[in-house]
Design a protein around this nucleic acid. Structure first.
Lengths: 165, 165
DNA sequence: CGCCATTGTGTTATATTATAACGTAACTGA
DNA sequence: TCAGTTACGTTATAATATAACACAATGGCG
């Protein structure tokens, strides 16, 4: 019998993380080229930080990381927020509303509604690619024109439940 | 042919709002009595403000309203946040994560996952009572113990689409 | 190329949202 | 009525986010 898929498997999709990062960065470059958008050095830096983390990070965490890597020129919040705005608008990252945090998208460019499982113990986040939640269908039936959906489920993953005894 | 239900109908559930407020406040009192909890004057004030508004309000909006009603003693943010925390813990209000705002719950005390449609034009919010989103079921299958779910769909309601031409 | 329009970056200041910490008051139960 | 607990009030500050403006880089186009 196949082992049951667990939260960590989903969160990290059983992958070689270094390879995954490079893959996603490359997809991002491709996507920006196709769309005639500029993935500037700043934007790439911010994306890389999020890709490397693969966990949600606050804007100020990203800022701190930028300033840690290059302490010679201290940069300010708007720089990070602007890069985040760009990356979000292109679907390269997501905002986790319930955490005021940002995370790289695991299937950049796709338009389907992102849905997250968030473990509040280990802080891992799984982005699921399920079909749109039925609520979206219902919304459309009401004549409601959806532009954005936020689906964030918080709890404790199986792994952490075990550790807690 | 029956008229199609629209967003506003859902948002306000075709009700007499004054009556609705009193009803919900009364339910809240009942609920606190049953649970041996203190719906203190402060907590009731905050709940009443949210009930009267029936739309999402920021913590500082609520604070301003409290201070407007009684300008003789200026109160500070923690007072509001503590009342909000209590009301949320008892399911009397919800937090709209994508707005940093709070809204009174239309079916207080029920434990089912709240789901919101938010019109970003008229700012009306419809709280839906649908069955749990399938993602919750999936989460459980992964052994993920859900404690909280956030489902917030933003867009433009039918009414506002018409007005926009 | 040289110009201009547009887009992106950098900087300063400040707005908005939220909480820590600590003392006092009010309530509750014995 | 006293002790324990819960709630309130106050001050200060943390954490998150944006406005506004100047300058730089880019990219089309003559």
């Amino acid at each position: 019998m196949a082992r049951k898929t667990n939260f960590a498997d989903i969160a990290f999709r059983k992958h070689d993380h270094g390879r995954c990062q490079r893959q996603l960065l490359s997809e991002a470059k491709q996507l920006c080229e196709t769309r005639k958008l500029r993935l500037t050095s700043r934007r790439r830096q911010v994306l890389e930080i999020l890709l490397a983390s693969h966990q949600p990070m606050g804007a100020y965490d990203i800022l701190a990381e930028l300033n840690r890597v290059n302490p010679s020129v201290i940069i300010a919040p708007p720089i990070v927020y602007r890069a985040l705005e760009f990356l979000m608008s292109e679907g390269l990252i997501h905002r986790i509303e319930s955490r005021n945090a940002f995370i790289s998208c695991v299937h950049p460019g796709h338009q389907c509604a992102a849905q997250f499982l968030i473990c509040r113990d280990c802080e891992q986040v799984a982005e699921l690619e399920d079909s749109d939640p039925p609520l979206l269908v219902e919304a459309n039936n009401l004549g409601f024109a959806v532009d954005h959906s936020v689906v964030e489920i918080t709890g404790i993953c199986a792994q952490c439940q075990k550790h807690a005894g």
